[in-house]
Design a protein around this nucleic acid. Structure first.
Lengths: 214, 214, 214, 214
DNA sequence: ACGCTCGGGACGACCCGTTAAT
DNA sequence: ATTAACGGGTCGTCCCGAGCGT
């Protein structure tokens, strides 16, 4: 057996293997032996590092959250219009969705696990709140800059994030994990939702809304 | 004595109980005993109606798909503007999300099961395609009527549905299964995304409007 | 499979099988599979009646105690001299020791388990106390009748019982479970320890002492 | 630097630790890790000195036997009456029982192990035989001296030893490992069993025996 | 016809004795 | 002498089915 350098490295290795298994077979559907084989270890080897399947999962959950938190914990740049910043945010997130299918699947898995565990629910809620705050800040700035129409920034952030979450969902339906619509198209839709209404070029589309909407 | 009805009733009862269990504990995480208890039967009783756990799940899957298909298989009315029709569509769907949390959770569960089963992937894909077609038809009509801006109707339908899928996702985080934003607010966002407006892409993202907005 | 009549019968069957295993291999040394095979069942069959090895053992312990308690819970007859009663007591107990080797071994096993479990210690202590009380009563009567020398009845009861416990111990060393000395000889020794009189009641128990020694 | 001494010391240390564990948890119930911790080592450390758990136990068994053999392999002094010698023998043995609870428990453990192992049975049998021989010799001398009543010395030795074995048994029931009756009382009972004369406090028990020897 | 009691295999997580590498 | 790893169990438990009542 080829030994690995550090304890941390080994744990990471096992964690990665376990993640692959969990997102493919689910939590209860994954056997310790699957994880061991995926990590190139024996059952006992895994046991040496993790005494319980549950601990393994908890570590994965926390690592995932840390990872996501870290990726999105930055102050969005201010030297460009807010809409440009938002576009970048959305594009990066969508590209990540495709680039890291297992991370995306893990997100999906966590959802179905949420009803069983208040702990998962809580952590997922925190993560969601952080993302909302990030997006809401940019949207708020866009409103002040006049590039976005007025409204509740948090509410709009929720809407934008919901769309991206939904797209993440649909990658599960594609064997290759492709998005149903391209990131650029999605960006376009998001912008359409937020952009401040310019004066419509009257006559081109005629009466837009029957005015008395909803 | 209509035996048939009783038999069918019993099966429905078991199916409902099993669904509750599956969405709470996952497929492998659910034991036959759980289902039996939830249905007020003994293990043998369940077994009398369903020879295998797998059959049970298959029935649930098919019933769910039938149910959803049936709910959305109608020709949208034509005697009102398309945007109004779309609003109704979205509102109904969102209200259903909240009204039937287990159905929503089942949808979430199916996603995570998709990577393991081509069968599920296929059926979910069909369902998704049907929904897209439904929405796309309305959106296309809206474009013709001039209430929606021009674009690819399918693409936009995907975007709208993604947002709703994402909202469905978030009900899992709430113990009561509430949506993070109200259906009316969501409708507003959808309309904003679709409404006809001149595409003001001057430059690429640049200052969208010379600030003088309406 | 031949069904057995009652639930109780089946449990007794398993209990007996488990007892045989425990006294041969010890508690931790006995596998559930051993018990199942000994009872002519599969592991699942045993599990149906006993969900945990521990419960099985607890039932065995209690059954053993009940059994012993029942066997010795009687009022010794009063229509004969106390020494004769005692002789009968001792003889019955010693013969049982040989006749039921597994019960004897179970007693030995319980001793080694005592240091690990306050519960066992307590129950064994109760049993011991009951036996002491029984013997002490007879001894006390013998003292009043003048057939036993004066002394602390409890203390003497302890001594008598210790001897019998020690003899039980030694059956473990014999493959056939024979006592190292015959029950009659043991009776003789016990009487010698208690008797108040040198002049043997000739004919009744035989010449206890050659009387004319030295 | 005496490596040898250190090595031997370590082994003794491990042996003592293992004994403590075995008597508390039984053989199969004791894990190597328990022993390691008790000895202040790591699992591998124990393994460095003992290649197998079984060897460890064998060493303990042999050490125990050697120890006991050594303690009792002496020629009883002849310069005092045999009954006095016997009293000393019994007292020493009983005091040891209390003074070394783990040794006592080890004795108890070995009994329950006996049915599984002919080896243990044989060794325990040898030990028992040696003790019987020792006691029988003293008893035989006592008979010749007239202080003990006539009878089969071996048989009586068995009886005496059985009583002590039984007392050892009862220390297991006491958390502190106390005997149920004091050594002096036990000695009294043993003497009563062997003595050729009743307690000669004349008048207390009526006509005893006129032959007041020694 | 319908349901339950009882049982059979099989398997999963956990843990342990043992060894290889350091 | 320790840390890391390996297989081989063991217990608990699960899914499934056969027999027995009602």
């Amino acid at each position: 057996m080829t030994r690995q350098r550090t304890e941390e490295e080994r744990k990471q290795n096992i964690l990665a293997a376990a993640t692959r298994c969990f997102v493919r077979r689910g939590y209860t559907g994954t056997r310790l032996l699957d994880i061991a084989r995926e990590a190139g270890l024996s059952k006992g080897g895994v046991y040496f590092h993790y005494r319980a399947k549950e601990h393994l999962f908890e570590d994965i959950l926390n690592a995932h959250l840390d990872h996501v938190r870290q990726r999105w914990s930055f102050e969005p740049v201010m030297d460009q219009p807010a809409d440009r910043t938002l576009v970048q945010l959305v594009e990066v997130q969508l590209r990540t969705l495709e680039a890291e299918p297992d991370e995306t699947r893990l997100g999906n898995l966590l959802i179905t696990l949420a009803p069983r565990s208040a702990n998962i629910r809580r952590k997922l809620g925190q993560m969601s709140a952080a993302m909302v705050a990030l997006y809401a800040a940019v949207i708020r700035r866009g409103m002040q800059e006049g590039v976005f129409r007025r409204g509740d920034p948090e509410l709009l952030a929720h809407a934008v994030l919901a769309m991206m979450r939904g797209l993440a969902y649909e990658t599960a339906l594609d064997p290759q994990g492709k998005l149903p619509i391209g990131p650029e198209d999605a960006v376009e839709c998001v912008l359409a939702m937020l952009r401040s209404l310019p004066v419509p070029r009257v006559g081109e589309f005629g009466p837009v809304l029957p005015s008395g909407q909803n």
